[in-house]
């Protein structure tokens, strides 16, 4: 990840910050200049709940450069409660525990390290909803 890209994407990457389109009121993620739904200018930052469900998923064995230490790992398309679809890794779950429609929540985790001397890139992943234990 380039230094300008790390800086520019920090909020969306670390905390899933998106936008609400001021024209059609829909949630947009990732943030962009033009609303993908109504075509109007969209630049109003808005946080998303981080809650959603697994729309689809796959197990990655042949990882792209930088992700090899984590293989095999799960990648999913998550349907956020606010509407947008987000592609992200699943974490804290094994492949046999995942199913389509499973409720998940956003956590911030280490995405990759750029060698031993480079930046550590953190970003959003999703995990099964943590069930609060009754005391």
């Amino acid at each position: 990840m380039t230094i300008p890209s790390y800086w520019r994407t920090r909020r969306q990457r670390l905390s899933l910050e998106g936008e609400i389109c001021p024209h059609c009121r829909r949630h947009v993620f990732p943030p962009r200049d033009i609303c993908p739904y109504c075509g109007g200018p969209a630049k109003a930052a808005a946080s998303l709940s981080g809650r959603g469900t697994v729309y689809s998923f796959s197990l990655v064995h042949n990882a792209p450069a930088g992700f090899e230490p984590y293989a095999p790992y799960l990648v999913a398309i998550v349907k956020l409660d606010e509407g947008p679809l987000v592609t992200a890794q699943l974490t804290d779950v094994s492949p046999d525990e995942v199913s389509i429609g499973m409720p998940v929540e956003m956590v911030t985790r280490k995405l990759r390290e750029e060698g031993e001397e480079g930046l550590i890139v953190y970003g959003y992943k999703f995990r099964p909803l943590l069930q609060a234990e009754a005391l």
Binding site: K110, L111, I120
Partner: peptide, 13 residues
């Protein structure tokens, strides 16, 4: 800690 966890990710949650 898991492979994607460290002091920063623990602190964030």
């Amino acid at each position: 800690a898991g492979l994607d966890e460290d002091t920063v990710t623990i602190s964030i949650e």
